[in-house]
Structure formats: structure tokens, C-alpha cells
Design a protein around this nucleic acid. Sequence first.
DNA 1: ATATGGCCCTGGTTGC
DNA 2: TGCAACCAGGGCCATA
Length: 279
Amino acid sequence: MPELPEVETVVRGLQAVLPGRRILGVRLGKTDFIDDPAALERELPGARIQRVRRHGKFLVFDLESGEAGANRRSVLLLIHLGMTGQLMTVPAEAPAPLHTHVFFSLDDGRELRYTDVRRFGRIRIFSNGQADVLGGLGLDPLEASEAEFVAAVHARRAQIKALLLDQHVFRGMGNIYTDESLWRARVHPRRIGANLRRVELRRLYRAMQDVLNEAIRSRGSSISDYVDAEGQRGEFQLKHRVYQREGKRCFRCKAKIRRIIVAGRSSYFCPRCQRAPRV
DNA sequence: ATATGGCCCTGGTTGC
DNA sequence: TGCAACCAGGGCCATA
């Protein structure tokens, strides 16, 4: 579910209420999606939340652990929402929905809860202050300059859809926003990165940033599971132009939207606006 | 380097 | 109504 705009929305919601809060305790349900469950129970009680930020599709919690004094350490808590992960703060006495597997009790009577039907999400903790996984990720699509974007795409012979989805190239893009960006830029998902022309790269760069920024403004896309940190659905699904619109008319040219598999994922495009590469 | 398919899991939808 | 097949905002791994 959650791509950059959804994660950004959740991060903003949590950053507004969590900094300064202390974690009192951790309760766990199923733990097969947690790298080291015991480490959570060991490191988190007593830790104070400094900041919540986004890195690609990861939520990063900067924590200060240990008593104010000698043995205080900075701890990083990483949460990836996978397809169906939800993070919400609620009053501690609120009933927990099905598939809620992590409960962080806070010092203000509330709880931060992680719910994930499919458990494709991941939770990792780093008590040494640095998280290796974050270093391997590619450019943030919203921070990259046009020159950086062009350089990252132009050097590659992979299909543009695969490049946009590859977190080692661009961190945060997912299936929805990749298709929406390609449609806006009028670029077929199977085009080879290195074969894109300058004008196409420029259009794609702008389309990608526009789509992501508009989606953030709409608080993300809610297809089925996604809700923000307050449990509210997003609204950008109302503005999708191709995603899951197979057989419907293109908003630009009225041709019928098609669905094909690219990079192993359903890919929606307009066969008239987005010309297929010659094979 | 790039592409493909299986796998991880649960649940909703579609079609027979 | 039942039931199987297919699909889903992600990502990792093995294989070619």
C-alpha cells in the first residue's frame, strides 16, 4: 500500500504528537515480521522519542535510550509498512483491531500501534545509532535535482518502470505513483531508461514530483487498507488517472487504458499516449 | 546488469 | 451457495 506520499503523511501525523513522549512498554503479538523482537522489549522501554522522519518508504524513529547520564544511547527504530501496515496513536483503552501486533505504550496515556493484515511490513531496531539498510537506498524523488534524475535514468538499460520501482535508484516510488507519473509524462513503462530522450526525461521528472506532491497534499491514496496516523483515509485515489483503470477511457485521449505486467507488477497505461518501444 | 518467477501472508473480488 | 482462481500501495531471493 504505502508509497512515499502515504509514508510521508503518516510521518507528519506522528511527528506532530510523538516527539518528547517516552515509551513505557512494548507488547507484541505475532513477531515473524520483526527482525529481533527481544531487542524491542529490551531497548524501547524508557526510551524517549526525539523525532519521526521518513527515508524512502521507511519510517525512522530517533530515540534516546537509557537514563539521563552516562549510558544514554541513541536508538533507531525502523518501520516499513509493506502492503497493509498501519501505524496509529490511540487512547490506550481503545479496542485493538484484528491483526494489531505491536503496542507501544506512551507516557501520555496513549498507545502507538502497528497493525498489518499481511505482515509484509518490517520492524528493525539499531541500538548503535546507525542503520545500514538506509545507506543503500537511492535518491529521494522529491529532493533529487533534474540533473541527478536524468543521470540516474540515462545510465541504465533497464525498463523505466523497473528503474522507478527500484529502491536502490529512487527511494519511495511504488506501483501507483510510477504508473501515474509515466502516464502524465506520456512514457511507456517498457521504455529503456537510456533510450529516453531529453524532453521525455524532463517531463517524467516533473510528472513524478508533481504527482508525489499532489498526493501528499491529498494525504495519500487509500485503495483498501491505507489510513494515516489518525486513522483517516487519504483522497488521492480519486485523482488517479490510470492506476486500476483497465478498460476505462484515457483522461487525455479517450483510448482504452490497458494493463500489462512490467517488472512483475500490474502496469496501467494508455496505448495511444504512451507509445510502446519497438521490440 | 537485467528480467522473471516464486515466496512471504490474509482477505476481497470474480467467475464458473 | 460453494469454491477455486486471481488480485492487492512491497521486497527478497534464486535462477537464467
